[in-house]
Design a protein around this nucleic acid. Structure first.
Lengths: 197, 197, 197, 197
DNA sequence: GTCTAATCGAGACGGTACGTCGAGTCTTACT
DNA sequence: AGTAAGACTCGACGTACCGTCTCGATTAGAC
């Protein structure tokens, strides 16, 4: 579905897209999702309002694209050992959820996905994308014998993420390294089974 | 001579407050937090727009009160056994987070509490209120010897709630009774310690 | 129609009337007719808004009364000579029409009398009242032989007043003593007839 | 490069101006100056309220323009004889001041010019414009020998207009043809001097 | 290199909701 | 009964954005 070489695309179009989305992202993190106006995006980006509407039919559509642009992620991640893989993963997640620029967006994504199926799809793609890394790490752990073969990797990935989301977004409690270490170790203790005690 | 409780106040004031807040709550659950309009509240409640502004300086203030009014809760809850207490608690939470009327409000509460300290306070009061029930049940469990005396009740309550929030609000995955049973049993298995295995 | 002794009248009523009308007059001359609000009158007079509405059904009614109160006038005026009578009369008129406190009211009276019959009546009573003094002076002049017996006193009074109104209210031109003298002398020259040349 | 006449401007702008001003004038003459509402103008003209505010920052500004538009006038007027010139002039003035559509506006102009310098300027331009016609007629009369060369044309024009304004606007008395004839003839008798008697 | 068509900037337009102000009505308690 | 205090409805104010719409100026990319 990508516009490969069928038509070279006017460079102005791409330029406008970039500039507008960047401005939108800036505004989302500065003022929050609900206070972003087309007017403000136009002003910030230097792109005329009419041009913005030529590219996106509605403000929500623009927001959707902006969120999509803000989400891109691609860490391979493989330290060779399960525990450190998980620590890295959790640290990244914490950083993401507590950084001012991103948490606004994350919240927006979560909230709006309850109403808008398009955002829901985006949101679940994002979530699955991240979980995939964890699941891969877990599976490597199983292969290495660090975990029993009977476990459900998907469930375990959720068990790892849930408390982090809960604390960061819902309880609204600061998360330090000590917590992360303890959390991962508890998780390992539970899932490795009694033999590893 | 101060108007503590000596002045009986105009009954219309209370009446207006009730009617307006009720209308606001209706609209929040129907159309979501972001699409609620003073105009709409006025129309729905039959109270003039200017009157609403006499009671609340800004729409957010009204929303705050509406959310506060929507949150009230007071279950005593004590079945005499830990497992069934927890099952009841989790069921209630699931019901709350998945009901259309309430989940909108919960999301709003969570999102806005990241921006507005007043809402943050409200949100944390609400959370603490609910956690309190769980903590009490856990402590009763400890007294009855169903749990070791060494556990941290607060942490355990969080462990019980986190996956429910995660699934309902973030993963956006349906939660059935089977999951609840399994979740509670896993939780018990982990916290009861090896003696109960 | 006056409330003589049929009922003693609550003194508070009269007091309220006075205070309110005085405040209204003040505000009319300060801010002009169009910017007077019941709210402001209430504040200025210290009389509650509801009380004001108990005395006057509408703001215009109050205004009407205020204007009526501001118009009262009762100069006898008789210098014994026509020319000086007229000079005095014109001077008074000029003063009235150019004083800040009164001109606002005069304009209001004139304008509103085009729409409201009650104000029209008030206005014409006021005009007739003033003209009456001039007519009387003219008639005394006729008796003294200063004017021919054939003249129409009513018409002549109008001829004297018209240019003053025109300059003061319509042309919006300052009126000095020189003009007044010249105006009266021209008037005398015209109406005394050729014999006096 | 300045937008003198180089930029053709959006034709919609002119169209909106016209339609709105026309509606405003209609409403001024129907309901009087004080009861004209942006809301009503919007409804009557079919132009959105926000568009009206884009053209005029405040309602008074709009009113000013509407009055200016309603005042335009351009009669050359020259019958070849002084008396008939004056009769025509006075008739026109009477018609103007007694027509419902215009008298409201005239009053508004007069009243508001006491408060707002911009309206004062407009008002005096209007007055001077009209007086100019009379002065020209008088000067033609002087050239033709119908009037002595010693007279002050400006003063005479005022003498002609003053009683008409007085009767129409202040005394609020109907003006018929008989009055006009008599008024002009008296004026002529006075100003032609004794030679013409 | 021009030329033509896509793209853009500027901004008018009809809307909807905002938060404010004042009018006029109504209710309650005080004096 | 008259008053003070102030809640209530209603309607207009002027503001801020929305999404739609011309309309001229400016670039590509094809010739």
């Amino acid at each position: 579905m990508i516009n490969t070489n069928s038509r070279p695309v006017d460079p102005r179009i791409e330029r406008t897209r970039q500039v507008v989305l960047a401005a939108a992202l800036e505004l989302i993190s500065e003022r929050g999702f609900g206070s972003v106006t087309v007017e403000a995006i136009s002003e910030r980006s230097g792109v005329a309002r009419s041009t913005i509407y030529r590219h996106w039919k509605q403000l929500p559509d623009l927001m959707l694209d902006a969120l999509a642009a803000g989400i891109e992620r691609s860490t391979p991640l493989d330290t060779g050992e399960l525990r450190s893989d998980l620590i890295v993963f959790v640290c990244e997640l914490v950083e993401l959820l507590t950084s001012d620029e991103f948490s606004q967006m994350a919240m927006a994504l979560i909230v709006e996905s309850h109403r808008d199926p398009a955002i829901a799809e985006l949101h679940s793609r994002f979530l699955r994308g991240r979980q995939q890394f964890t699941i891969a790490a877990i599976e490597r752990g199983i292969e290495r014998g660090e975990l029993p073969t009977t476990v459900d990797a998907r469930q375990m990935a959720a068990d790892l993420a849930a408390p982090v989301f809960f604390r960061a977004l819902i309880q609204h409690v600061p998360i330090d390294e000590a917590f992360i270490d303890q959390h991962v170790d508890r998780w390992l203790a539970i899932h490795r089974g009694p033999s590893h005690t």
